[in-house]
Simulated assay, not measured.
Amino acid sequence: MLSFSRTLRRHGLFLLVLCLCCAGCGEEGPYRKVTVPVTGQLLVDGKPPGTPVQITCHSLTGIDQEHPTFSKTVSGENGTFAISTYESGDGVPAGEYAVTFEWKTLNLVSMGYSGPDKLKGKYNDPDTSDVKFTITEDSEPIDLGTIELTTE
């Protein structure tokens, strides 16, 4: 019985060491592009919106088929924003972008935005957006400044 117990401990120790070695092997995680912070502030009819405005970046050169990304955020009540790709406020990968804005109501049941756009669809077409920017991998953080939108 004593020999069985020693063998079991030895095999258990071997399995533990094997598991720890395997845990350190392999990929470090999913591929992530370098991102550059992009920030700004929105005013609607001359004042902060008070409720979140959805902000989306649209690639002007098309979606990267091998490593697609989607960069977006919502503004704070005071209109400030920091665009996110992988995690909150991390920024946007290299590329040319047009920015769109939609101001809908947060639906607490679905935890999504729904209802009519309070901006009446004036800012949700990337082809007609006046807000555009370009990022290279060595770009400094970009401040889009104050962006003024109207409900009229």
Rank of each mutant, 00 (worst) to 15 (best):
119 L>C: 02
110 S>I: 00
139 S>W: 09
107 N>S: 03
114 S>H: 05
115 G>E: 06
104 K>I: 02
123 Y>L: 05
127 D>R: 11
132 K>T: 05
126 P>F: 02
131 V>E: 07
115 G>H: 09
118 K>W: 05
109 V>H: 06
107 N>T: 04
137 E>C: 05
129 S>G: 05
129 S>Q: 06
104 K>D: 02
132 K>D: 02
139 S>A: 14
123 Y>T: 09
112 G>F: 10
107 N>D: 12
105 T>E: 14
128 T>H: 13
106 L>R: 08
135 I>W: 06
125 D>Y: 09
134 T>W: 04
116 P>Q: 13
110 S>L: 05
119 L>Q: 01
123 Y>G: 03
138 D>N: 14
134 T>M: 09
115 G>N: 04
133 F>E: 08
106 L>N: 06
121 G>I: 03
128 T>S: 15
124 N>A: 12
103 W>N: 00
117 D>W: 02
131 V>P: 08
113 Y>D: 02
125 D>Q: 07
118 K>D: 09
129 S>D: 03
138 D>H: 11
129 S>A: 07
103 W>C: 00
115 G>V: 02
128 T>N: 08
105 T>K: 13
134 T>P: 08
122 K>A: 15
131 V>Y: 05
105 T>D: 09
120 K>D: 13
139 S>E: 10
117 D>L: 02
106 L>D: 03
129 S>T: 08
114 S>L: 04
106 L>C: 01
114 S>T: 13
109 V>L: 09
109 V>K: 10
138 D>E: 14
135 I>G: 04
107 N>R: 02
124 N>E: 06
129 S>C: 07
132 K>R: 15
123 Y>W: 10
114 S>W: 03
105 T>M: 10
112 G>I: 09
104 K>F: 02
106 L>M: 11
133 F>G: 08
108 L>D: 11
122 K>P: 07
139 S>G: 11
133 F>R: 03
132 K>H: 10
105 T>Q: 11
137 E>H: 11
107 N>I: 00
126 P>T: 02
110 S>T: 12
116 P>C: 08
123 Y>R: 01
123 Y>E: 08
107 N>W: 01
121 G>Y: 07
116 P>A: 15
137 E>D: 15
104 K>Y: 02
122 K>D: 09
111 M>N: 13
123 Y>I: 08
138 D>V: 12
126 P>S: 04
122 K>I: 07
116 P>T: 13
111 M>Q: 14
126 P>H: 08
138 D>G: 05
134 T>S: 15
108 L>H: 13
112 G>C: 03
131 V>T: 15
129 S>V: 04
121 G>V: 05
125 D>F: 03
137 E>A: 14
120 K>G: 11
138 D>S: 14
123 Y>N: 05
112 G>M: 13
126 P>A: 01
131 V>L: 10
132 K>W: 06
115 G>P: 05
109 V>D: 10
111 M>V: 10
135 I>M: 06
116 P>R: 12
114 S>D: 12
125 D>H: 09
135 I>A: 08
131 V>G: 12
110 S>P: 00
137 E>M: 11
127 D>T: 14
113 Y>L: 01
128 T>L: 07
